[in-house]
């Protein structure tokens, strides 16, 4: 079989996989043309590497196959690239993403590039392994390659806060200067004018983990910063750099493991805040599973 059409087809499906997974998303940087070009091009290169692997092995060109493995390691750079860009932008954010969130995003970008490579590789493999006429081979490979990213996406998407915890609105109260949400003393706000803004415009939210796994995950400081960042990003925040009083803080109710947050959004709409918090992704690095251990189950 002529390998060139197979390679071309595989590159196309691999690149399609990368484009499909590169969604315009409020949280995944970058939703800009330049970012798109970078990632689609890197995805196409990854797809090329995946596409030529099978033909190289079939033509007994093992040297080429080995070289591909070496080239694939270069894609690790993608994670570094994303991490550096996001870290550099961190100082410009009113509510920073936090290191854990940046790490999570960087990892997703690297992983999706490998998925482009994998899609291309499996497309060419399908083309070679399907019995029958060339048209049948190509048809099967095309369908498989086009469907694979659609099937993979739910698997790689991961969980969100709403999957592991109940999110409810909790009233904001003050004990003297102390800002309190659900009995958790969040911070000392000295100025009465600021306290009035909190009373009038502020929203409190309590996140109740459904099991010990969720409790351990929500305890992670990076996960909590991600919640504050996403909520502020989606609702807009009543804050400027010289107003640290309005920084949304996420604190833990140490007796129950619940997590509370007080925030002054631009528009105080409780339903919007609940939706934003429920859709915050669970960061891979923050995820913990004490229930998977014997000691964890004994504690539960």
């Amino acid at each position: 079989m002529n390998s060139v059409p197979v390679v071309v087809l595989s590159i196309l499906t691999g690149t399609w996989a990368r484009i499909y997974l590169l969604r315009i998303d409020y949280r995944i940087y970058p939703s800009y043309p330049q970012g798109y070009v970078i990632h689609v091009m890197l995805g196409a290169i990854a797809a090329f590497l995946g596409a030529v692997a099978v033909p190289a092995i079939i033509s007994k060109d093992y040297q080429a196959a080995t070289f591909l493995a070496l080239a694939a390691t270069q894609f690790r750079e993608i994670r570094t690239l994303e991490r550096e860009t996001l870290s550099n932008m961190e100082a410009t954010e009113l509510v920073p993403r936090g290191k854990a969130y940046i790490e999570g995003i960087a990892r997703v970008f690297e992983a999706r590039n490998y998925l482009a490579l994998l899609t291309a590789l499996l497309t060419s493999l399908t083309a070679y392994l399907t019995p029958g006429a060339t048209a049948v081979k190509f048809g099967c490979a095309l369908i498989f390659g086009a469907l694979l990213p659609v099937l993979i996406r739910p698997v790689v998407q991961g969980q969100v806060i709403g999957d592991v915890a109940d999110v409810e609105i909790a009233p904001i109260e003050f004990d003297g200067p102390m800002l309190i949400v659900a009995d958790v003393r969040i911070m000392n706000i000295g100025l009465e004018t600021v306290r009035q803004v909190y009373r009038k415009q502020g929203l409190g939210v309590i996140i109740k983990p459904r099991n010990p796994n969720a409790t351990a995950t929500l305890a992670n400081v990076g996960q909590r910063q991600a919640i504050a960042h996403d909520a502020a990003g989606q609702l807009g925040i009543h804050k400027d750099i010289d107003e640290p009083d309005y920084t949304p803080l996420v604190r833990r109710q140490i007796s129950t493991g619940c997590v509370v947050m007080a925030i002054v959004p631009s528009e105080p709409q409780p339903e919007a805040l609940l939706t934003a918090v429920r859709n915050v992704p669970i960061l891979e690095g923050a995820r913990k599973k004490p229930l998977a251990s014997r000691a964890g189950r004994l504690v539960d």
Partner: peptide
């Protein structure tokens, strides 16, 4: 007290905390 604390906070990008004893930091 409130005025001076606010001015210093604005100038230093700091935050005012009330110690509830006639003192702000």
């Amino acid at each position: 007290l409130v005025k001076v604390a606010t001015y210093i906070a604005k100038a230093t990008l700091g935050m005012v905390h009330d110690l509830d004893n006639g003192t702000y930091i």
